[in-house]
Structures are given as C-alpha cells and as structure tokens.
Design a protein around this nucleic acid. Structure first.
Lengths: 103, 103
DNA sequence: CAAACTCATTGACATATTTATATCTGTCTA
DNA sequence: TAGACAGATATAAATATGTCAATGAGTTTG
C-alpha cells in the first residue's frame, strides 16, 4: 500500500492524536524521566488497556512519528519531530505556502 | 470525533491520494474544462466504479481538501490549497520547522 | 414529455481497525 | 533462582471502511 497513506493513517486516530499531544507537552507522571514518557503512563492518561496502548504506540513508532527507547523493564517514548517536518514538506506540494527551509 | 482525525482520515487512503495527485497536475481528459476535473474522468483514471468515486470525492470535499462545482449535469473538482496550508500549520506544532508565513 | 445522461444514495458484502482478555517474553529483585 | 513487574503478542468481538450493483435525483435534449 501507499507509504504516505500508511503514515497518514497512523495520525488519523483520536487516541493517537491525544498521545502525540501529550508527548508534545508532557506533564509529570508517575514513571516520567528525562528519557521521555513511560508506556504505563498512557494507560491512565487515555483510560485504555495496556495492550491497546501498546498497539497504538507500535503504529506511531512504525510510522516514524514517535521514538521508543527500552530501559530495563520500561519503554520511554518521545516525538520524532523530523518525521513531522518531512510530512509537512510532502503536504507543501498541495499547499499554497511552502515549508521554511533551514540554513 | 476529533475534527483533525477526520481530516487526516480523508487523506489516509491510497485512492484519495491518487485523486489529489491528479488534481495537482491534471492531464487533459475527456470532460476536462478550466473549471477543474470532471467526476466521470476519475472512473477511468482510477479504474473504480462511479459510486466508489463519488464516495471518495464526498470525503475529500467534506474534509475541505477539494472543492466541487456543479455545472449542469457535470461536477468539476479542484484542490483547495488553503486547506493543506492549514493542515501544515497544525503539524508545525509537532515539527521542528515552522510554516512560512505570508507577508 | 420521454429518454438519455451525470452524479448521489442505498444496501450488501469483504476487509480493516479498534479494543479487550488471556498469555508470553524479558527484566529486575528478594 | 522464584516471583513480580513492564510490555508485546495472540485471539476474538464490535465497529468502521472500501467497494459495487441497483436505484434515485436532477439536467439536458430529442
């Protein structure tokens, strides 16, 4: 299937958008660290079961929008901002405004 | 449901991405006019039935990415570039690069 | 007005997606 | 090493989505 469609599908879900919003501005949670937000925190934040959270995180990581780092028993997540920049650039073909280039 | 998720969902489909690609750079087709691309042309371009095309166009129009104009029996479509610009701006919150502002 | 034409809607069906329960894997610690 | 713990995977159910055949609605034209 189209690669771009897969990426967009990863974003096109209210739960996953909530996850991204939280990663954008994480409030202090029980397992938080400077590594990122712990997987277990999303269960309480989203009110969803552990496997459901795991499923959504997997999609976001596979699409490249989120990075996962395993530390012992825990997995910490944070945003991969470059992926969003790349998507913006793809969309710029359709938009009237170009994306600002660095440098 | 989340409004942004609905918009992204409208983009997150290979067929609809093909439609947008074609609207970005329309080659001459049987019913084309300066009004845009005729609905009937997409059937041959996409190899899909007329109701299926109608369904996809409806989603794209509802999400705001495409404009539809009825002229007699025909409906002509074209891109709504402002909608893509708005989406870029939403994504800029997550991206490392901001969207270039006009003016 | 009737027939033809373009597109929209309805109904049906197959596939995909979201979610949870149960279970498995890997890691830590007592 | 045994038990507890964090997260992944398998399975299953409910819902959503993509597709087409049939039909409906509005427009043009003979």
């Amino acid at each position: 299937m189209n690669d771009l469609a897969t990426e967009l599908k990863a974003l096109a879900d209210p739960v996953r958008l909530s996850i991204l919003e939280f990663l954008l501005d994480p409030v202090q949670t029980c397992c938080a660290s400077d590594e990122g937000v712990c997987a277990c925190d999303f269960e309480t934040i989203l009110g969803l079961s552990q496997p459901t959270v795991s499923h959504h995180m997997k999609l976001l990581v596979q699409a490249g929008f989120v990075r996962a780092r395993k530390r012992g028993r825990w997995v910490y997540y944070d945003l991969n901002r470059e992926a969003f920049g790349a998507l913006q650039k793809v969309l710029s073909r359709f938009a009237s405004l170009p994306v600002l280039e660095r440098g």
